[in-house]
């Protein structure tokens, strides 16, 4: 055989050698010397059950950089779809593996109820709540609606004529719209909610003057409000927000509703009690670190760290509340 005929085989051999070297090398350098004892040199993996760019993805990636100091390299991967329930259904296969974490939140609670997901959060071990982001109700600057009270008056007069644009069906914006509808004495199922694939798209529907109002995450809309493109009517937080001190809360506007779009991190079911508390320690230590605090400031997220039995109880009550309102809205 001439040289040309041998070349492909040489290439294959070289490639094999490189592959073997890289495989051996990468299995050696995982973790850092100060990695937690229970990790035993294993690498943490965090699933973001959404597309890159969303809140869960951002949370997972911020965790990744905030954890670098304590547990070394972590891997973040995305499993997109259906309010996180696709990710959740894949996540359950990691039963008993403490190195596999998943970011989740209120939206997943709602999606499980409205998609009738066969897999539920009882198949995970809740670790810690991390952040909250509140919702904001806005209208275009040229809208005749001046205040939340105006909007409520219109909704009381004819619930169907007030169209509210927001994110995906069954998501946090629709839950808020339903809660507001119920709080003012209306039928949540009659709230005229117009679902969009994201906050930005909902914004265009309301800016074009088609929909009456829009609901979106505060951090997404602060720039629009500050630039004077949108008039903020109310926020869903218990107190006014530092970023928007002039915007009243829903309660101040006479609507007895509070809703936080919280995000949390869970571990697989079937891990030991020791592993659970070790993971909780890792997460709590991360939330106290400078890197995480800087992240919260930059992203405009509120620190909502909550662990242990308190968090378990919170999860329970949120699941009940969300399932109920979704049922009343005819979504679950």
């Amino acid at each position: 055989m001439n040289v040309k005929g041998v070349a492909p085989f040489v290439a294959a051999a070289v490639a094999t050698a490189v592959l073997l070297v890289s495989t051996v090398a990468s299995s050696g350098d995982e973790g850092k010397s100060d990695a937690r004892a229970f990790l035993d040199g294993r690498q943490l993996r965090i699933m973001a059950p959404a597309a890159p760019g969303g809140g869960w993805d951002q949370t997972a990636r911020e965790m990744q950089s905030a954890l670098r100091g304590t547990v070394g390299r972590t891997e973040v991967y995305n499993v997109n779809g259906a309010g996180g329930t696709i990710g959740l259904s894949q996540y359950t296969r990691y039963r008993g593996q403490p190195t596999e974490l998943m970011v989740m939140g209120l939206v997943m609670v709602g999606a499980i109820a409205s998609n009738h997901s066969p897999v539920t959060l009882s198949q995970t071990t809740p670790l810690a709540r991390l952040t909250t982001d509140y919702e904001i109700i806005v209208v275009p600057t040229n809208s005749p609606v001046q205040s939340m009270r105006d909007l409520v008056a219109r909704m009381r007069a004819d619930l169907g004529s007030v169209s509210i644009a927001g994110g995906s069906a069954g998501g946090v914006e629709q839950i808020l719209a339903g809660l507001v509808g119920r709080a003012i004495g209306g039928d949540p199922a009659k709230v005229n909610y117009i679902a969009h694939s994201g906050g930005g798209e909902a914004l265009t529907t309301v800016l074009s003057g088609s929909a009456t109002a829009a609901v979106s995450g505060v951090s997404e809309l602060v720039p629009q409000v500050k630039a004077g493109k949108m008039r903020a009517l109310a926020v869903s937080s218990p107190q006014r927000l530092p970023a928007l001190p002039d915007v009243p809360t829903l309660k101040e506007a006479g609507v007895d509703v509070e809703l936080a779009n919280w995000r949390a991190v869970v571990a697989p079911a079937g891990i030991t009690v020791d592993e659970e508390s070790a993971l909780e320690d890792v997460v709590v230590e991360m939330t106290r670190g400078d890197a995480w605090q800087e992240t919260l400031r930059r992203r405009g997220w509120a620190d909502a760290t909550m662990v242990g039995p308190e968090f378990d109880a919170f999860m329970e009550s949120e699941q009940r509340r969300i399932a109920q309102v979704l049922k009343e809205m005819g979504l679950a």
């Binding site: 005929g5 492909p8 085989f9 290439a11 294959a12 490639a15 094999t16 490189v18 592959l19 890289s22």
Partner: peptide
């Protein structure tokens, strides 16, 4: 044999 060598090399390169 040649095709297998190509395939193996391609798979490794893609993986790496």
């Amino acid at each position: 044999a040649l095709v297998a060598a190509y395939g193996w090399t391609l798979a490794i390169v893609v993986f790496l």
